[in-house]
Amino acid sequence: MFIDTLLIGLSSGAIYSLMALALVLVWRSTRVINFAQSGQAVLSTYIGYEITLRTHNYWVSLPIAIIAGALLGSSIDLLFIRVLTKRVKSGPIAEIAPVIATLGLLGLIQSLIGLIWGNAFLQYPSPLSAKGFTFGTHTIPFSPQNSMIVLSSAAVLAVFGIIFKYTDLGLALRAASFQPEIAQLAGVRVARVRNIGWAFAGSAGAVAGAVITPTSTLSPNSLDLLFVSGFIAAVIGGLDSLIGAVVGGVVLGVGFSFILQYIGSSVTFLMGFIILMIVLLVRPRGIFGSKVGRHA
């Protein structure tokens, strides 16, 4: 029973990690909490859904959804965030304006989805069985679908990890997020690099949506709760740490799973906020967050 609970927790934790990663990528590059993230992810998922319906092949739709997510993230930065940060440079709303814009965008994207696909709950056909693996007579609640969720999240995290640690692009991304001015003076095209951060975030969110949606239903708001968990996970992890996002996601997923198993479903979300409050009170910068804020 303990192992079962742990495995289920890992599966949902993997998804939280992806969502947290998406939020961290945007936060690091632009210092904006992107509330539109769940909207972006759900729109990419609808696009994937549409492709799956037409091609009857989930594996064709997955990469297309990822690319759509990346393009969506990149365009939101180009069309809204960059314009806003350029126009509203100082004053009391300078920092909050882009965040409010992302809230507006969330509404915009979700109503757009409603117009195109309607607000009904759609069934996203699953590529893999949702029936748990059987060992002898014991069937565990962990299915091939769950393993796909864990593996694809791990793959995304590994790819980003390698890019960040070992490539020039990754170095530019890190430099631009830590010290944009110094990066600029060293020749890094900071605006472009930020845009790539938004694209990466969009694709991470798209993977999250594409792998989790077949386990439930698809609707314009279907990823909103995932956003909340992802956000809590990102804050637990420290908001600007990629490793923190992963650890935060897994901790939260496994935590929720055990609470659900041993205490009951009514308190799971409450526990999420309690964990969040404890982290914020005891260690406001999160488990892996950097000590100093960003300079100029």
Partner: peptide, 23 residues
């Protein structure tokens, strides 16, 4: 080279140097 040691503290020495030739 801006005022006050224009390096990126969070990066390693090697990475700071690499930044100069990244483009």
């Amino acid at each position: 080279i801006s005022e006050g040691r224009a390096v990126i503290p969070e990066l390693t020495v090697s990475e700071n140097l690499a930044l100069g030739g990244i483009w």
